[in-house]
Amino acid sequence: MAALMEAQLPLRAVNNKIRVDGVSRHFPSGHGGQLAALENINLEVLPGEFLCIVGPSGCGKSTLLHLIAGLDRPSTGEIWIDGRKVLEPGPDRILLFQELGLFPWLTARENVEFGLRQKGVNTKERREQAGYYLDLVHLSQFEEHHPHQLSGGMKQRVALARALAMQPDVLLMDEPFAALDAQTRDLLHDELERVWRETGQTIIFVTHNVREAVRLGDRVLVLSYRPGRIKTKFSISLARPRHIEDPEVASMSKKVLGHLREEIDKSVRAEFHHEQFA
């Protein structure tokens, strides 16, 4: 049975893996003003939790992940991981970019090895681990290919292997499967869920696809449109493994979508307005 409830603050606040504390991020906008991408985000993520964030485009989802990854600094507020303040990127939390960011001058294997090399892992071990993770995403045949020789879905999987190979405590995923066909995405959902259960990683997964969020997440957060605020938190207590076509997933998605629809409308209106009068 799908249980819809406004999630309570976790009681064991001390044991949080990630704590986002009153975080805002403003960007300078064109005319000397400020654009608030995120406004007063408070969020606690438990160790091993799979948290999904949905929101309309322009709600600051990616910005939040960049902040947690340490690639960007909040304008106000703080982010804590394992009780340590995030000041810079770290190998304990790896972001899987929406644009992937695979290095075109390296082969698939070398891309996966890149982070291990920065960690100082020796050549032999690097090779083994890269081989293992490429095998995990079913790309062992394509180890020596360069990114441009791979299809969109394959590139996505290389990027996933590159992130997983770092064995991060926290995996941050920014719409990683948005560009994939439905079959490949289904497959990768299963793979990701399996890896997650095996490793006990904490995952924050950003998507605009509500079905995907409900299929994967322990919790689903809805962000509002500009400035991005947390609008609603849903706990998803459906039994795993789930499938995206499960009727329970569908009915839960409908509820989440109800909350999201209003924000999407706002974002579409804003874009329309922008086109008309900009």
Binding site: L71, E88, P89, I94, F97, E99, L100, G115, M166
Partner: peptide
């Protein structure tokens, strides 16, 4: 920018 970000993200600085 994405390459620099990906590099930093994977521990290069």
């Amino acid at each position: 920018r994405i390459y620099a970000m990906a590099g930093r993200n994977l521990g290069a600085s």
